[in-house]
Amino acid sequence: MPTVAIVSQKGGSGKTTLAIHLATAGAYAGKKTVVVDTDPQATAAAWADWRGDFLPEVVTSPPARLAKTVEKLAKKGADLIVIDTPPHADASAREAIKAADLVIVPTRPRAFDLHALEATAEMLNYVGKEGHVLMNGVPARATKMIEDANARVVELGLKVCPVSFGERAAFHHASGDGEVATEIDPESKAALEVQELWKWTAKQTGIKGGKGGGKKKA
């Protein structure tokens, strides 16, 4: 039962958007996927309320109970657990990293955001886990910016996720409606990026089958 932690010490990096899109892709791929929301603001849980009865399931958990929560979900047959963490919260990030088989670190490719990666890199090194940095909110035609950002990621001893997310309005519009980008427009660039992330995550964690696409029923 793979567990993916979405971790970043920087606010506004897109952790919750990433978590709900990845988990929903897993649900469309036929996997029993659960988002564990450890953020006191419970943004992922609010999204689930707006979404209604559609998958994936979202549960909340304080950091001190995270290991037990993951254990219980595994016993209930979860195929994939995605942990959403708050910014500026070492305890939550540390517990999520400990529980994870794969750690994804979203960041925007800008100086302040890249600087914030240092704290996450130190935490990963302390726990003894690898982190894969996903560039999020990437502007169009920002090749040089991405090259420089990737170089900084490598300098910090982190890995570069081969998938990146562009600055897509579809991500924001979908989340506010309790949906994901794939459900609004399955052929959009945002939807295709999510599908690529699902395929990469499945390969990294050994999950078999399913494309992670689909459109929510009315």
Rank of each mutant, 00 (worst) to 15 (best):
I81S: 09
V82C: 03
V82Q: 07
V82H: 02
D84A: 13
D84T: 02
T85I: 06
P86I: 01
P87W: 01
P87D: 08
H88E: 12
H88G: 03
D90V: 02
A91D: 07
S92A: 08
R94A: 07
R94E: 03
R94S: 04
E95T: 03
E95D: 14
A96G: 02
I97E: 13
I97S: 14
A99N: 09
D101M: 00
V103N: 04
V103D: 07
I104L: 09
V105E: 10
V105K: 12
T107H: 03
T107N: 05
P109S: 01
R110N: 13
A111M: 13
L114C: 03
L114W: 15
L114V: 12
L117P: 01
E118K: 15
E118Q: 15
A119I: 08
E122C: 13
L124G: 06
L124I: 01
N125R: 14
G128Y: 08
G128C: 11
K129H: 02
K129E: 03
G131R: 11
L134H: 14
L134N: 10
G137Y: 06
V138M: 06
P139C: 01
A140C: 00
A142V: 03
A142W: 05
A142P: 12
T143H: 06
K144V: 11
M145P: 04
M145D: 02
D148C: 06
A149M: 10
A149Y: 05
N150D: 09
N150A: 08
A151G: 10
R152H: 14
V154Q: 15
L156S: 12
L156E: 11
L156N: 08
G157N: 08
G157S: 09
K159C: 07
K159M: 12
K159T: 12
V160N: 15
V160L: 05
V160G: 04
P162G: 04
P162H: 00
P162S: 03
V163M: 04
E167F: 10
R168S: 05
A170K: 08
A170H: 10
F171K: 10
H172S: 12
H173D: 09
A174G: 02
S175H: 15
S175T: 11
D177K: 15
D177T: 05
E179Y: 09
V180G: 02
V180H: 02
